[in-house]
Design a binder for these strands. Structure first.
Lengths: 140, 140
DNA sequence: TACTTATTGATAATGATTTTCAATAAGGAA
DNA sequence: TTCCTTATTGAAAATCATTATCAATAAGTA
């Protein structure tokens, strides 16, 4: 499905479509939690055994460049990646299973405006992320 | 001033006060921008030449443990630290000079509540950070 | 089908952080 | 103050993540 779209995006931007890239793309696109390069490596090698870790790094780099995936920051580390979602979305992470949910919510404008006035800063970007337990982990 | 408070906190928690720790504490406490371990090392050695980089790492670790300092996440990297501020505060970073301003702002409750309802997640923490230009860098 | 050149994986290099360890010094007890 | 226990230190080595190098390979256009 969407893995094809990702590959098309790569191709449109002058990158070649290879078995290695397809394996990485399919792995990351399908995942509902953020994956580290090594995790991607381990999972994608089930699809394409000859894959090298270096190629995973290089492919993730390109996907991030094209805003197809995004880096996820967590207390435990900031090397994991997940789909960038569509439009301006924020992340909600399950602290138990790692599951990621996307949400929109820019009721932040008023707050940002007020902070700008108080501090004298010209604010151009914001990061907003929520942590908790997903519906599943909540009951178990 | 407050550097003494930090050292007292360390002492209260069973850690000894040493010249190395004092140099690190004075450096980080005084800084208005987030510093990496190596930056702290370079700056603190002006106060105490025998300081080792390893000790910087160890001291930062303890300060973070006691919530005296916090790790700052940025697109360029997540290894820098700054004072934790008081109470529940968020960060506003100048993308030009690195200057950090603190602000409070939990008009977020309503938004969080609505996201919780929509997603089924039980939300326990949030992470909110702003980026922009400080008043100074704005004019230059 | 042929050919140009991006891409590959292996290896080596780098950079950041952690571990190990013997020497030192903090700070409570006498 | 002086002594003594033990946390802390810095240097060096080990580990872990990421990046650069390079010759061999394969994408995809002509």
């Amino acid at each position: 499905m969407s893995a094809e779209v990702w590959l098309t995006q790569l191709h449109k931007n002058g990158y070649r479509i290879t078995k290695a890239r397809a394996a990485v793309v399919e792995t990351v696109e399908k995942s509902t939690r953020a994956l580290t390069p090594v995790e991607v490596y381990d999972m994608a090698r089930k699809k394409y055994r000859a894959l090298g870790l270096v190629t995973v790094y290089r492919t993730l780099e390109k996907l991030e460049e094209l805003h197809i995936i995004q880096r996820v920051h967590q207390p435990m580390g900031c090397q994991a990646f997940i789909s960038a979602g569509h439009g301006h979305q924020h992340l909600l992470l399950c602290q138990n299973c790692g599951q990621v949910a996307f949400f929109e919510g820019d009721d932040l404008d008023a707050l940002i405006e007020s902070v700008s006035k108080k501090t004298g800063y010209q604010i151009s970007e914001h990061w907003f992320q929520l942590f908790g337990l997903c519906a599943n982990c909540r009951v178990n």
